[in-house]
Write a protein that binds this DNA or RNA. Structure first.
Length: 815
RNA sequence: GCCGGGGUGGCGGAAUUGGUAGACGCAAGGGACUUAAAAUCCCUUGGAGCUAUGCUCCGUGUGGGUUCGAUUCCCACCCUCGGCACCA
């Protein structure tokens, strides 16, 4: 018998699939429904890792299943090709980022091809191609013209090691997400996309996708957007015709305000502060600017010499500059209620400021000196004049209503979400297409001049600002409006921009008249199934949702939400930790493919755990997967000359075989629909075990047996396509298995005509007895009490009642 | 601190709407084949106990509850893994 030789057959079939273009997605096929299967594209770091293998094996199983189910499938792949590692490689190895990136792409494409994934390679996209990024430059200019972007000096997170600005999402525990260095605060001119204008849409449109997305991803995004309802309240400045506005979610505690806190970098602070406190204040602000927001730091502040008037009772309260007040949330001014807010409580204790109780609950002392912490929960108002006695939830809006009439308050909302800073002081990214003219100011590049290409001759040292600033013939240009000598913007886009629309580009990847062919996008969008890592729950997935809405509002797409369904796969773990070079627990997919073949790698990865869960790598498990494929090979090889045909199901053996065929199709189909690949595979393994036992003896049995083998190959095809295709052809087929239809099952044949009924006494299993399907209670009961195993638990006891579940269970309750 | 997952054999994991817990695989043990080994095939395998070829009890993180019956539903708690973290 010929041996299973994965190395040989995998290359063979990959070639045939490619030659016959079986994975080419056909734009506009009216005879089939479309299915857009997408996996998160990789960064071309050099090699595919196990996380990719998992991600793409899941996606491929879905894509191939949908093909068999009769869908016109779009299954593309590309590379998220801009980013920092290319520059680091340039510094370390003295290679150009472009060269490094493209050679990595070449290698990784080979690796992906070796895994046999069903991509339409004609649609390959690399985001560092100017044919790609020119379109986001165009979109940016249109956003600029519509006021959807702005330039602003702001305090930003800056990584001194990467020498670049980071988005909030790119800061983890105060450290750079990429290199782990301590992030510092810096004021810079940056470009922002007004994602906050879309905050409500991003929240509301979740209802369009909530059926297809994991709940926890939506919850994470909801928390990230962080919408809170509250009130803006005006506090008049004593002795001046001016006021400060605060945002609060607790207007019910307004009578408990004993001071006001203001951010040290608030623009009005210097102007307001009284002369005698200015020196101390300036010193404090200086110190604050140096250290920035230090989360671990104790709450500190200084008095400004200013008093404000509390609008609810006219009382004067002091204004303090405080280091814990954020300038970019709310108004940068906070009303302090030390009795009912822990931060204010700590601050008041430190600076001996009064604490006032305005919310009461059972057991809460009236003597605030006894308090060791603020009471921040709900309760009933006290010491609040006409509102005393009112439930605090109700009082919140009653007090606002009352102040609103006097023009001193209004209901409002605040978001935790900040605008998206897209400026990066890096070389390897898409240039921001803007020109600074001494006469005309900030001017976008003309659309017809796009792309603003990245210059190739650049010296990358990794030190100091943007490398583009040193490229004279890039920086120096003419103003598109007045023609005067002007300077180009030297920052490049955050690479999250590229990944916010690549799935649209796949629909018409070579289209050169615009960002994409609208009709094709209309045909293919939305993505029916998106598969990727949970680590992108917020950043990438939120940006992509936002960008799609922007493109919709610019008239490019009809979609409001790009991804109809989302599957977030778990990490690949080894020895209890995520695979990483630093931990030395990396398993290289190339090694596994060399040793066992792609099918084994795919089978193991899909079998070892359900997709959403973390997957523990196991060398023994891989061995087991390989063993199964050999077992499959031997089974089919030894019966490869049998031919299937119509059979009259006339004997018990034929009936049983037929039942197993149909039952297995049903199980596998149902589990595929639910993406439970691990149980899909288990069902196939059980089927194989059954078929090993069967031994077809006559013509009819052989015909039906051959059918069983064909069904088995069709069921396994989405998971282990190479071996399945080879065995299919060994069975004498000259069609391609990949083009075969998914097998259908006959519902009636998935049910046996007998069933095993559990006999329990007081809920405890005592026996299992086989009955014809549909047997009645009395019939089952009569048989059951004959069983000695049941009988012995009934003896000497009264039968109180019987619970009968048809075809399943009889519970006899005794006393 | 807040939000959200998750706790099932030695291990990865199965178990429709509450109805036979542990499918499938791994590991382990035993046997067959072989001069031998590998490969393969077959059997056993949650724990404890006993008057052992069968039977009893216990068992899905812990303690309660609802129910004829709970891995599944309810309450309280413990552990663990993610996310957010001075957001007023």
């Amino acid at each position: 018998m010929e041996k299973y030789n994965p190395a040989e057959i995998e290359i063979k079939w990959q070639k045939i699939w490619e030659e016959r273009k079986v994975f080419k997605a056909k734009d506009f096929n009216n005879s089939k429904p479309k299915f857009y299967q997408l996996e998160m594209f990789p960064y071309p770091s050099g090699r595919i890792h196990m996380g990719h293998v998992r991600n793409y094996s899941i996606g491929d199983a879905i894509a191939r299943y949908k093909m068999a189910k009769g869908y016109n499938v779009l299954h593309p792949m590309g590379f998220d090709a801009f980013g920092l590692p290319a520059e680091n490689a340039a510094i370390n190895n003295n290679t150009h980022p472009a060269k490094w990136t493209y050679s990595n792409i070449d290698y990784m494409v080979k690796e992906l091809k070796r895994l046999g994934f069903s991509y339409d390679w004609d649609r390959l996209v690399a985001t560092c191609d100017s044919d790609y990024y020119k379109w986001e430059q165009k979109v940016f200019i249109e956003m600029f013209e519509k006021g959807m972007v702005y330039r602003s000096k702001s305090t930003v997170n800056y990584c001194p090691s990467c020498k670049t600005v980071l988005a909030n999402e790119q800061v983890e525990d105060g450290k750079c997400w990429r290199c782990g260095s301590e992030v510092i605060q810096k004021d810079m001119d940056e470009w922002f996309l007004k994602i906050t204008d879309y905050a409500d849409q991003l929240l509301d449109d979740m209802k369009l996708i909530e059926d297809g997305w994991p709940e926890r991803v939506l919850i994470q995004q909801r928390n990230w957007i962080g919408k809170s309802k509250g009130a803006f309240v005006k506090f008049k400045v004593k002795g001046k015709d001016d006021y400060l506005e605060v945002f609060t979610t607790r207007p019910d505690t307004l009578f408990g305000v004993t001071f006001i806190s203001i951010a040290p970098n608030h623009p009005k602070l210097a102007e307001l502060a009284s002369e005698e406190y200015k020196d101390k204040l300036e010193a404090f602000v200086k110190e604050f600017n140096k250290s920035g927001r230090d989360f671990s730091k104790e709450k500190e502040g200084v008095f400004t010499g200013v008093y404000l008037i509390n609008p609810v009772n006219g009382k004067e309260v002091p204004l303090y500059a405080a280091n814990f007040v954020l300038m970019d949330y709310g108004t940068g001014v906070v009303m302090a209620v030390p009795g009912h807010d822990q931060r204010d409580f700590e601050f008041a204790k430190k600076y001996n400021l009064p604490i006032k109780k305005v919310i009461h609950t059972d057991g809460l002392s009236d003597n605030v000196d006894e308090w060791i912490e603020a009471y921040a929960e709900s309760g009933v108002l006290v010491n609040s004049e006409q509102f005393s006695g009112m439930d605090n939830e109700k009082a919140k809006w009653e007090i606002v209503k009352w102040l609103e009439v006097k023009g001193l308050a209004r209901i409002g909302y605040q978001y935790r979400l900040r605008d998206w800073n897209v400026s990066r002081q890096r070389y390897w990214g898409a240039p921001i297409p803007v020109i600074y003219c001494p006469n005309c100011g900030i001017v976008p590049e003309k659309i017809e001049n796009l792309p603003v290409k990245l210059p190739e001759d650049v010296e990358i040292t990794g030190e100091g600002g943007s490398p583009l600033a040193k490229v004279e013939n890039f920086v120096n240009t003419k103003c598109p409006i007045c023609g005067a000598d002007a300077k180009r913007e030297t920052d490049t886009f955050d690479t999250f921009i590229e990944s916010s629309w690549y799935f649209l580009r796949y629909c018409s990847p070579k289209y050169d008249k615009d960002i994409f062919d609208k009709d094709k996008v209309k045909y293919w969008m939305n993505v029916d199934q998106y598969v990727g890592g949970i680590e992108h729950a917020v950043m990438h997935l939120l940006y992509a949702r936002y960008f799609t809405k922007v493109l919709r509002d610019l008239g490019y797409v009809d979609s409001t939400e790009p991804f109809q369904r989302l599957l977030t796969q778990g990490m690949v773990i080894k020895d209890g930790a995520k695979m990483s070079k630093s931990k030395g627990n990396v398993v290289d997919p190339d090694d596994i493919i060399n040793q066992y073949g792609a099918d084994t790698a795919r089978l193991f990865i899909l079998f070892a755990a359900p997709p959403e869960k973390d997957l523990e790598w196991s060398d023994d498990g891989v061995e087991g997967a390989y063993r199964f494929l050999n077992r499959l090979w031997r089974l089919i090889y030894s019966y490869k000359d049998l031919r299937s045909g119509d059979v009259d199901i006339s004997t018990d053996r034929l009936r049983d075989l037929n039942y197993h065929i149909n039952y297995t199709i049903k199980r596998v189909t149902d589990d595929f629909e639910a993406y439970h690949f691990n149980t899909t595979i288990a069902a196939c393994m059980e089927f194989v075990n059954y078929l090993y036992d069967f031994n077809p003896k006559n013509k009819d049995e052989q015909k039906l047996y051959a059918k069983a083998l064909e069904v088995l190959l069709k069921l396994l095809n989405p998971i282990v396509p190479h071996i399945a295709e080879e065995l299919w052809s060994l069975m004498g087929h000259n069609t391609l298995l990949v083009e075969e239809k998914w097998p259908e099952y006959d519902e009636k044949s998935t049910i046996k005509d007998t069933t095993v009924i559990a006999i329990t006494v007081n809920g405890k299993l005592r026996d299992t007895i086989e009955f014809p399907r549909g047997s009645g209670e009395s019939e089952v009961f009569e048989k059951a009490i004959e069983s000695p195993r049941v009988k012995r638990h009934l003896d000497g006891k009264d039968i109180v009642k019987k619970i009968f579940v048809k075809d399943k269970l009889l519970n006899i309750v005794v006393k």
